[in-house]
Computed example of a mutant assay.
Amino acid sequence: MKTFASAVVLLALIAASGARELQPNYAPAPAPATSKPIADIVFVLSAEKASFPSSSTLELKGVSTTAQYYGAGARAGLISTPIFANGSAGAEYVASNGEWLNVPDAVLFSNSGSNNQAILLSLQNPLYNEDDKTVTFTITVLPADESALKTAHGVTNELVLEHADNVGTPLTDAVKPGTVLTDVALFIDENRESLKPIAETKYHWGWGNSGWGNSGWGGSSYNSGWGSGWGSGWGSGYGWGK
């Protein structure tokens, strides 16, 4: 699982920095104009197993104790999974309208033996179960079409582009109830500016010029996870950045 997690993290970082612009063998076509917000953050949640109790439910089992986040400017850090995957009213990542992370787009990668695959999803209502360390989401499976995505230039977009070129990890456009996948990682695309209204409602949260404010989400920090140097970052997480 460690090898796969490292590989998909690398994919996320390459995608977030514009992987296609780094290819030396051809000149990429100009990206189409878009009014969508840029996916300048990616959250990563790893698990031993993913199952689909129904076509609209994803359950992650053996989930990691922390979620990782990566952003522009080498910003990165960790967030406690119970805090990150709390979809209840008033929770750290829940807006006043009850939406968790603005109902983000995501891609679920699986490394089930030789049957590697990816599924594009829209996520809602995460529920963390402390007793068995599972996270359950309400999901919608998204088509391999950039027009269906909420953000631009993210991990989800990169997978759609690769799918159109018949390269990369195969995309699955539907899930059957009862399907089980192993060695999985969930990549969630987000835009920092889109999260600002959520952040402004949280206690001890500031939006400073040096990054994600002076205090981080949910407590005091040392220069903040999204500011300069080490900090407590988002909630009970910690991180670093420029």
Score class of each variant (00 low, 15 high):
227 G>L: 05
154 G>S: 07
3 T>F: 07
239 G>A: 08
118 A>Q: 08
171 L>P: 05
241 G>C: 06
215 S>Y: 13
166 N>K: 14
145 D>V: 06
45 L>K: 01
193 E>T: 14
123 L>G: 08
215 S>W: 12
240 W>T: 14
164 A>E: 07
13 L>K: 14
132 D>M: 07
230 W>V: 09
192 R>L: 15
2 K>G: 14
138 T>I: 06
145 D>W: 02
91 A>D: 01
39 A>D: 06
15 A>T: 10
157 N>C: 11
151 T>E: 08
218 G>F: 04
238 Y>M: 08
92 E>P: 01
183 D>H: 13
185 A>H: 06
71 G>R: 10
103 V>C: 09
93 Y>K: 00
81 T>R: 09
22 L>A: 14
240 W>H: 12
111 N>H: 12
90 G>T: 07
69 Y>I: 02
141 V>I: 12
177 P>F: 05
102 N>P: 02
173 D>I: 10
137 F>S: 03
199 A>P: 00
236 S>H: 11
240 W>Q: 12
65 T>R: 13
80 S>H: 06
2 K>L: 12
164 A>I: 00
18 G>A: 04
210 S>C: 12
77 G>F: 05
98 G>R: 03
143 P>D: 10
172 T>N: 09
66 T>S: 13
192 R>V: 14
14 I>L: 15
20 R>Y: 06
18 G>S: 06
21 E>Y: 13
53 P>G: 04
4 F>I: 06
214 N>M: 03
187 F>Y: 11
108 L>P: 04
38 I>H: 05
10 L>R: 14
138 T>W: 01
99 E>Q: 15
189 D>K: 01
35 S>E: 11
121 L>Y: 07
240 W>V: 14
238 Y>D: 01
217 W>E: 08
123 L>A: 10
120 L>A: 04
122 S>V: 00
72 A>S: 11
209 N>E: 12
37 P>T: 05
18 G>V: 05
76 A>Q: 11
8 V>D: 07
129 N>T: 11
131 D>Y: 04
145 D>E: 08
22 L>C: 03
232 S>N: 14
33 A>K: 14
20 R>C: 00
127 L>V: 15
214 N>I: 00
29 A>L: 15
163 H>T: 10
104 P>M: 05
67 A>K: 01
230 W>I: 08
230 W>Q: 07
136 T>Q: 13
70 Y>N: 12
109 F>R: 07
147 S>H: 04
135 V>F: 04
13 L>Y: 00
61 K>V: 02
29 A>W: 00
184 V>P: 10
125 N>K: 15
145 D>F: 02
230 W>A: 11
84 F>L: 13
150 K>P: 02
110 S>F: 03
212 W>P: 00
100 W>T: 09
135 V>G: 04
165 D>S: 13
